[in-house]
Design a protein around this nucleic acid. Sequence first.
RNA 1: CGGGGCGUGGCGCAGCCUGGCAGCGCGCCUGCUUUGGGAGCAGGAAGUCGGAGGUUCAAAUCCUCUCGCCCCGACCA
Length: 506
Amino acid sequence: MTKQTKTAIVPTRVEDYSKWYQQVIKAADLAESSPVRGCMVIKPWGYAIWENIMHAMDDMFKSTGVKNAYFPLFIPLSFLEKEAEHVEGFAKECAVVTHHRLEKGADGGLQPAGRLTEPLVVRPTSETIIGDSFSKWIGSYRDLPVLINQWANVVRWEMRTRLFLRTSEFLWQEGHTAHVSKEEALERTQMMLDIYAKHAEEYLAMPVIRGRKTASERFPGAVDTLCIESMMQDRKALQAGTSHFLGQNFSRASGIRFQSAKETEEYAWTTSWGASTRLIGGLIMTHGDDDGIILPPKIASSHVVLLPIIRKDEDRQKVMEYTQSLSRELKDIKYHNRMISVEIDDRDIGGARGWDWIKKGIPLRVEIGPRDIADNSVFVARRDKDHRNKESIKRNQFVGEITSILDEIQKILFDRALSFKKEHTIIIDDKKKFNDYFTPENQEKPEIHGGFALSFWCGSDECESKIKEDLKVTIRCIPFESDTGTGKCICCGKSASGRVVFAKAY
RNA sequence: CGGGGCGUGGCGCAGCCUGGCAGCGCGCCUGCUUUGGGAGCAGGAAGUCGGAGGUUCAAAUCCUCUCGCCCCGACCA
């Protein structure tokens, strides 16, 4: 033990939050940047999280009647032009395919050839191409509702990218539904938001605030955008899912018409809703500590790592056999909608081995040495507790209790995140206090500060954008569970009803 | 895209100002000794310094261009 740093991750969250974020992703082996600008490689330990997120969400969607399908990556340029606001919103960040062939150029390199008559846009979102299908699928009110989801990649050519939080290409699901009535579409919009909230809280252990976006933050082309917002440990807000009520905007644009029971021709009412790999970024920043990430058991890449401790060569066989049989026994246990996932790490690298798994955030580490075997027990460490805090448990007791131990970790992570959010969510009615709350003491190198402010807002674009300009603070949402009292707008002082959530955001 | 910073083995960095054999810590590989908390000793592999061009006897170092990353803005899931 020549050199021992205090923490496994350098710098710590307090020292430099955004560096910490990059380091922790590297240390946990989740992802890395790629040769392609703004695009990332998601490594197995990170991708497994996404698989678990997908699995859980997919089940939830399907339980409400949604079916999966798949639509093209490429969208004809003319499709995207159909909805005015939509074009406006996405045009600047679209990747465009203009050629379909490569030829040897004069300099020996390859160059594009075969110009397309109509350029193809790499989907930034699929309302228009899916709308085209819907227009063909739907003829009568008896065809409705259509409830479709696709798991896909999309591309948005972002200026500034960060692993998981904002990459040029990202993975997500996008749901698209069409309904006979406005009420039904509104109900679906709310239903899917509630699913996101439930998924975030029950699986990601990430407490969220449900609410509605202001007009300026709305999805381009939507009538109403609902969202869930969660608080990261630097107290900034992360939008973790959105659900849009599109009214008849897109059905008009795409010609999604049906004949009603009253024999009239009507435009369908549509919705769309999405959640992305950004959730993994949220997960990292909600639970991670200065020793690495902490994975909530329900979506953890793996639940438990077995660490055989072999002191003498003659112990090896006995220890490995005990480890293998314990692994088999654990893998046979069902934990929520999957089986317990077990890793065995028998590398002979001393204590560094345990630290590797701490950094990777695995919920349980189990050391198995001759002493444990003699005692028919295991030595268990939990990622939600201090790394020195380990406990000897009888083997059969551990096997019997592992699911409840995991559930307990899941709950502790949620409770911890919830009290953090509560601690940094405050009611502010005084303008100076509001300014101070969102102004760091050290302007050069801002410390972690602020949080969520619940304040009154008069509803004007002017006040919203002034606050954004002055403090880089935006209205994250108009929460559903808002106090309905009246007060004075935090910006202009005019009377306002209902508090909104102000915060700095990712 | 505007302002600033940075690209040197897998990771973190020094060297650059003042050109002269490419270094350090961690990691990795081999052997021995160790082993309940990021092991010790010995040996070893791995980088032509983001890329291209230029200046020079000589370039990681100076100049030009370019690509990428990070931070701050504008934009956004």
